[in-house]
Structures are given as C-alpha cells and as structure tokens.
C-alpha cells in the first residue's frame, strides 16, 4: 500500500499494489492527471498504478469509482473534515453578524 496525503486538505489517497491489475482506468479517468503507472510490477505481474501528483488531486473519487478491483481509494481525514466544518460555521456566523 502506498499512502499519499494532500498537503492542504489532509485527506489520504491509497493505492494497494497487491490488488491492482494495471488496467489504467483510474489513470485515464482522473480529470487532473494525477495518477500514472509505476515502474513496479506486483507479484501477479501487473504494472501497478500509483499516485504521482497528489497536490493536483481534487478528491473527485473518479479513480476509486472506476477501479474494478478496489485497489485505489480515498480516506477522509476526519480531523481536517471537522476543522473545515468548524471553519465553515465560523465564516457563516461571521457573515450573519
């Protein structure tokens, strides 16, 4: 498993090389061209997909949802989510005031 964390939004994107079959769907359908094939092959002989530019990721879930093999997924960082929610509440309150 390879874990990347978005530098600002803090959520994680995980690629599981043991499950990947190298079909390239996630790579092809990522709107931000974040993913690419690695030079690694897994023990089944597939060339696996890896995160290459996490900074560009917009958490659109396209990769997770295209993957037929449950090999790529996003993990929300609950901490950041909560922080963001608080921030949002604050700004809304500020707006009201």
């Amino acid at each position: 498993m390879e874990v990347h964390q978005h530098p600002e939004k803090k959520y994680y994107l995980i690629t599981d090389e043991s499950r990947c079959k190298g079909c390239g769907l996630c790579i092809a359908f990522c709107p931000k061209n974040c993913l690419g094939f690695s030079d690694e092959y897994n023990d089944k002989g597939w060339r696996v997909a890896k995160m290459q530019r996490m900074r560009d990721c917009i958490k659109c879930y396209m990769c997770e949802r295209s993957c037929p093999d449950f090999a790529i997924f996003i993990d929300e960082n609950e901490q950041t989510e909560k922080e963001e929610l608080l921030k949002e509440e604050k700004t809304q309150e500020e707006k009201k005031n």
């Binding site: 079959k21 295209s66 993957c67 037929p68």
Partner: peptide, 12 residues
C-alpha cells in the same frame, strides 16, 4: 483479487 480481467466492468 477477483477472477476478472483487468478493467472488467463487473468489478465496477
């Protein structure tokens, strides 16, 4: 992993 070919729509 499933028996499916890489990229098969069944997994999706």
């Amino acid at each position: 992993p499933t028996i499916y070919c890489p990229g098969c729509g069944i997994g999706t």
